[in-house]
């Protein structure tokens, strides 16, 4: 036999570290006397360990990202976007190497302020993608080439 849906839900949440602390005591007490729920908890723990072991099935880009100083770049690339830090004395852009293709829409910089108060993102700041590069003077950084996984 097995316990009701609500108890099984709480057992799973407990094993996954998702159960509010106020409810944990009751579930622990139940687990002590219920082999079925104890087995469920064990199964969830094993499942989580297996997830960690397997690693995330990450998508691989199959293209290359590169971050280079603007001076090494062609001026009007479809995949070039200006990157400007407030205090930075040089510009960088992220360039996607690959055949050009249409863009589905423009991002417009419409980021909403982040909620938690821990950080925020400036509303509407920064260039539109069509502005490509922000000209900033100053020192040049060495190019950094970042290769994605080859597909």
């Amino acid at each position: 036999m097995s316990c009701d849906k609500d108890m099984k839900r709480d057992v799973l949440l407990l094993a996954a570290g998702l159960l509010p602390a106020a409810r944990a005591g009751g579930v622990e007490a139940h687990l002590a006397g219920c082999p079925a729920c104890a087995a469920l908890r064990q199964a969830v723990l094993e499942e989580r360990a297996a997830l960690k072991e397997a690693g995330a099935p990450l998508l691989a880009a199959g293209r290359r990202f590169s971050v280079t100083p603007e001076l090494t770049a062609a001026p009007a690339r479809r995949f070039a976007f200006a990157l400007a830090a407030a205090a930075a004395c040089f510009a960088v852009f992220v360039l996607l190497r690959g055949e050009p293709r249409p863009v589905p829409g423009a991002p417009g910089g419409g980021m909403t302020p982040a909620p938690s108060g821990g950080f925020s993102v400036a509303e509407g700041s920064g260039p539109a993608p069509s502005d490509l590069l922000l000209k900033l003077s100053g020192r040049r950084a060495a190019p950094v080439y970042i290769s994605g996984p080859r597909s």
């Binding site: 995949f79 200006a82 990157l83 407030a86 205090a87 821990g118 400036a122």
Partner: peptide
């Protein structure tokens, strides 16, 4: 992938707003 580029662009632009509280 396009969006990911946008994300890192935004990270760069707003790096100064990271206050280390998270």
């Amino acid at each position: 992938l396009d969006m990911t580029q946008e994300v890192f662009l935004a990270v760069w632009k707003s790096a100064g707003t990271f206050r280390g509280e998270s």
